Simulated scan of single mutants.
Amino acid sequence: MRDMIDLLDIKIDVVFKDFFGDKSSKEILESFINAVLGLEGDDRIEVEEFLDPRKMRVEVRKPSAFVDLSVKTRRGERYIIEMQTYNHDGFDKRLLYYLGKDYTEQIEYHYHQPISSKNSNDKKAKKMIGWADLPKVHILAIIDFHRSQGEKNGILNHHEVVETYRFKPEISASNEHIFDHWKATIVDLKKFKSKPVNKLKTDKEIWIHILNNAPFLKEEERELLKKDPIFQRALERLEMLSADPKTRKAYEASINDQRDHLAVIEAAERKAHKEGEANKALEIAQTLLKQGLPVNQISEATGLSSEEIESLR
């Protein structure tokens, strides 16, 4: 009996891209998208092409950032798949940027040599994608951070694990076919309540469970999941990536980078909190001084030194 391979966390970017972005295993990504979005029958998508994610580069700040995956379906629709493990300012606007950029990228010229012409001096014909041919674009963002119960970064936060946001016309419902061209779906991993593998009822639940718990799956749980052909293929691919020394090295480097980034964010938040508390104490001390309270009493009430209070006079 061979030793069981410790599985890597799919949520880490280098694993996520390799796991879902393998062209020879596109049925894994198809299964994930169809399950999470609840697409059935004729609505199910088939991936025709993996697009270059570098076209979706964000240059607002350095270093540049790219989307994790971008694909085109057989019906011509576009799907952007993004994994985000920490919150950051403007997360909602970043999703809108991706949607808009992918949509407008389609308006471009394509040059080709006319088939009927054998004369190399003939001018190349010019073909442009028509406005009516612009494809639907759907961004699927998987997030692994806590959102507030109300509104966070402009994104309304409801109780569902999977939330889809559509752009709807304010006045006439007859224009919904236009506004339906852009959609954004958020898969909130933090909202998913873990349960035993044998209690998972749908492919959507299984996929979210694997995303949340891949490193902790026991051997018997893996074998149970592998009874389904698609999850057998998925777990075997993850085992292959997890056993690859190069992938493991990149994985560990990515985790260290993420920890460093989170440490910087937490330090900045602590500093902001500390400065906010200090400003609050100074405001209270200023008020108490105006009311004529002795410096020693103000010091006890605010925690400020006598010198700091005297400087407010």
Rank of each mutant, 00 (worst) to 15 (best):
residue 232 Q to P: 01
residue 53 P to W: 10
residue 165 Y to D: 01
residue 98 Y to F: 08
residue 293 L to K: 13
residue 78 R to A: 12
residue 241 L to M: 05
residue 269 E to Q: 14
residue 99 L to P: 01
residue 80 I to H: 04
residue 39 L to Q: 05
residue 191 K to W: 01
residue 69 L to A: 04
residue 210 I to V: 07
residue 92 D to S: 15
residue 69 L to P: 00
residue 163 E to Q: 10
residue 246 K to M: 08
residue 112 H to N: 12
residue 234 A to T: 00
residue 9 D to T: 07
residue 34 N to F: 10
residue 68 D to M: 09
residue 233 R to K: 15
residue 103 Y to M: 06
residue 232 Q to C: 11
residue 240 M to S: 14
residue 304 L to A: 06
residue 83 M to C: 11
residue 18 D to W: 12
residue 68 D to H: 05
residue 79 Y to P: 06
residue 258 Q to V: 11
residue 33 I to K: 03
residue 58 V to N: 09
residue 296 N to S: 15
residue 139 I to P: 01
residue 14 V to W: 03
residue 139 I to D: 02
residue 210 I to S: 01
residue 96 L to P: 00
residue 86 Y to C: 05
residue 134 L to Q: 10
residue 18 D to M: 11
residue 50 F to V: 04
residue 170 E to Q: 08
residue 244 D to K: 04
residue 204 K to G: 01
residue 185 T to Q: 04
residue 80 I to C: 06
residue 54 R to T: 08
residue 34 N to L: 04
residue 228 D to G: 01
residue 40 E to A: 10
residue 276 G to Q: 10
residue 155 I to Q: 03
residue 213 N to A: 00
residue 133 D to K: 15
residue 136 K to H: 09
residue 298 I to D: 00
residue 138 H to G: 04
residue 193 K to F: 04
residue 177 H to L: 11
residue 75 R to W: 07
residue 148 S to G: 14
residue 176 E to N: 07
residue 175 N to W: 09
residue 193 K to W: 04
residue 65 A to Q: 05
residue 312 L to V: 08
residue 141 A to W: 02
residue 88 H to N: 04
residue 154 G to W: 08
residue 53 P to K: 05
residue 110 H to S: 11
residue 63 P to N: 01
residue 295 V to Y: 03
residue 256 N to V: 12
residue 155 I to Y: 02
residue 287 T to C: 05
residue 237 R to Y: 07
residue 69 L to I: 13
residue 29 L to W: 01
residue 306 S to V: 07
residue 94 R to A: 07
residue 253 A to K: 15
residue 21 G to K: 04
residue 44 R to H: 02
residue 218 K to R: 15
residue 205 E to Q: 10
residue 225 L to R: 00
residue 268 A to V: 11
residue 218 K to Y: 09
residue 42 D to S: 14
residue 294 P to Q: 12
residue 17 K to C: 13
residue 149 Q to N: 11
residue 93 K to Q: 14
residue 205 E to S: 03
residue 289 L to Y: 08
residue 258 Q to M: 15
residue 290 K to R: 13
residue 14 V to C: 14
residue 112 H to F: 14
residue 243 A to H: 03
residue 194 S to G: 14
residue 44 R to K: 14
residue 105 E to K: 09
residue 130 G to M: 06
residue 61 R to F: 01
residue 175 N to P: 03
residue 110 H to E: 13
residue 272 A to P: 02
residue 61 R to V: 02
residue 59 E to P: 02
residue 293 L to V: 12
residue 192 F to Q: 00
residue 115 I to H: 08
residue 116 S to A: 12
residue 199 K to F: 00
residue 156 L to I: 15
residue 119 N to E: 07
residue 248 R to K: 14
residue 128 M to K: 11
residue 131 W to K: 13
residue 200 L to K: 00
residue 112 H to W: 11
residue 278 A to C: 06
residue 272 A to E: 06
residue 108 E to Q: 12
residue 270 R to K: 15
residue 205 E to C: 04
residue 132 A to F: 13
